[in-house]
Amino acid sequence: MSCTCSTPRGQQRFCPVLGYLALGALVLVDMRQLARSYSVIGELEKRAIPYAIAINQFPNAPDQQAAQSREAMDLPEDAPLVMRDARDRTSSKQALIGLATYLLASPPPEPDQ
């Protein structure tokens, strides 16, 4: 199986495992390049893989709140969204904890037919 993802350089290598190994995904979004996240989110939704969004807060990125970001990305209400700083270990850990909490609270996926 192959998958086409528009991701930062070098990250396409993760796309083929989406259907086989992923229980969920943490999508790191740069609001300066928001459109690049749409194909990845679409691929996750197509494959019914639960995901959380982590908006990386870069120094010169647009200053948006979570509600504005959720609206801009047209995210489902149940999809977790966290603001984070990739340079901060604690912030990154909290984003992963948010995804794990979401996965544990979600119903198990339907088996493939």
Rank of each mutant, 00 (worst) to 15 (best):
A95L: 05
S6Q: 12
C3N: 09
L18P: 00
M1K: 04
I49C: 12
M83R: 02
D30C: 13
D74V: 09
A52C: 05
S92G: 12
I97Y: 08
S39K: 13
M31R: 05
L34Q: 09
R84C: 10
E110V: 06
P8Y: 11
I55Q: 08
G10D: 07
Y20A: 11
K93F: 08
Y20L: 12
D85Q: 09
L34Y: 05
A66N: 02
Y38C: 15
C3H: 04
S69D: 01
V82D: 09
L28N: 02
L96I: 14
N60T: 15
C3G: 02
P8L: 14
A100L: 14
I49A: 15
S37T: 03
Q94E: 06
I55G: 03
G24P: 02
S39M: 03
E45C: 12
R70V: 00
I97P: 01
A61P: 05
A79P: 02
D88M: 00
N56R: 04
A52R: 04
P107Q: 10
S106G: 09
Y20Q: 12
D112V: 03
L44W: 08
P62L: 14
D88P: 06
P8G: 07
L23M: 08
S39Y: 02
G10N: 09
Q57Y: 01
G98F: 00
D74W: 04
P50R: 14
N60K: 15
D85S: 03
S37H: 07
Y102G: 06
Q65S: 13
P50I: 13
L26W: 04
A48N: 10
F58P: 05
R9D: 14
L34E: 11
G24S: 11
P76C: 12
P111N: 10
A25C: 14
L23N: 14
A54W: 05
E77I: 03
A35H: 07
M1T: 02
F14L: 15
C5M: 12
A48Q: 07
T90D: 06
D30A: 10
P16T: 13
Q12G: 12
S39Q: 10
Q11A: 15
S2M: 07
A67V: 06
V27W: 10
T4P: 04
Q68F: 01
T101A: 07
Y51L: 14
M73I: 07
P108E: 12
Q113C: 04
F58I: 14
P50L: 11
D78A: 05
A35Y: 00
R9Q: 13
R70K: 01
R36S: 15
I55Y: 00
D112C: 11
S91G: 05
K46L: 12
L104G: 07
Y51K: 09
L18F: 09
P62S: 11
L21R: 13
P59G: 15
I55H: 07
T90K: 03
S2V: 05
Q113W: 09
I53D: 09
V29W: 00
R36H: 11
L81W: 02
P109E: 05
M73G: 09
S106P: 01
G42I: 13
A95P: 01
A48L: 04
A25E: 02
Q12M: 10
L103R: 08
E43K: 14
L21N: 06
Q12F: 05
P111L: 11
